[in-house]
């Protein structure tokens, strides 16, 4: 078997010209190596290495403009990356797309789009159904089941524009569930949702973890990091730190990530690890 990451760098490494990098672990749901993304002249994400853990919930945190969403989108190929490698369960992303479910930011789509809730969830079955395949009763009941899991079973026939922000977010999550993936990537799933929705979403995500799935969320609410997540990845354009919440979610690392933007009083209220 050839190594999945045979690039000029690794080839040069085998010839002893550069220090070889550690082999990409095949069981890691998502590995990024030297990921760099730029919108203009300034990089939005610079040379980020990350290894996301299996069977765990990971929060990606950092200040606004730190490149949290950008990193996720670049890993998926939604936006082009300048350089870097991405491996999903040890494979190139285009081979492993069936194993990923992606929930974009709710505000990134036009909710006036003329479609219904169940239709949006059925989009999650696209890779199963294909371009011309027929949607069967089994597909439909599967989509309904996913809606039930996020507590939106009664809204199947609603036009999506008639939903509240929290309900829209749950529909997006139901679409991801329909994808039946092994790695769930969510971009700010708790942004601007009501308390009931936040509860519903976290329950679903924890259930996914119990089924040995990996969950990665771009997250902005530092107050809930310790109670919701197992692992944390801190980023501010560059990678600051990554590891279990119990070890990595420290005042020191938060200062390094947010600079002076976090007040000490705020930090005192967080359930921080002792670094």
């Amino acid at each position: 078997m050839t190594r999945p990451t045979e690039t000029p760098i690794t080839l040069a490494a085998t010839e002893g010209r550069v220090t070889p990098r550690a082999a990409i672990p095949a069981d890691a749901p998502l590995v990024l190596r030297g990921l760099t993304v730029s919108y203009g002249e300034k990089p939005a994400v610079f040379s980020v290495d990350a290894t996301f853990a299996p069977e765990a919930m990971t929060a990606i945190i950092g200040p606004n403009g730190a490149g949290k969403s950008t990193m996720l989108k670049a890993a998926l190929g939604v936006i082009p990356r300048l350089s870097g490698e991405v491996a999903v369960f040890g494979q190139p992303i285009d081979v492993a797309r069936d194993r990923i479910a992606y929930v974009p930011q709710r505000a990134s789509v036009d909710w006036d789009f003329p479609t219904t809730v169940i239709d949006v969830v059925l989009m999650g079955l696209y890779r199963r159904v294909g371009l011309l395949g027929r949607l069967t009763g089994a597909h439909l009941s599967r989509a309904r089941d996913c809606l039930d899991r996020v507590g939106m079973g009664d809204f199947a026939a609603r036009q999506i524009g008639q939903l509240s922000g929290g309900q829209q977010q749950r529909v997006f999550l139901a679409r991801a569930l329909a994808q039946d993936a092994d790695l769930y990537l969510l971009d700010e799933p708790f942004a601007g949702v009501d308390a009931a929705t936040e509860r519903a979403i976290i329950d679903v995500l924890k259930a996914l973890k119990a089924q040995k799935k990996a969950v990665v969320c771009v997250h902005h609410d530092l107050a809930t990091v310790a109670s919701y997540f197992d692992e944390v990845f801190l980023i501010n354009v560059r990678r600051i730190a990554q590891g279990p919440v119990a070890e990595t979610f420290t005042a020191e690392n938060l200062h390094a990530t947010y600079g002076g933007r976090l007040a000490t009083t705020h930090l005192d209220q967080l359930d921080l690890a002792q670094g």
Partner: peptide, 12 residues
């Protein structure tokens, strides 16, 4: 048309 980011993520 509805969700370009999602479309890209599923490989369209």
């Amino acid at each position: 048309t509805f969700d370009e980011g999602f479309a890209q993520a599923v490989g369209l």
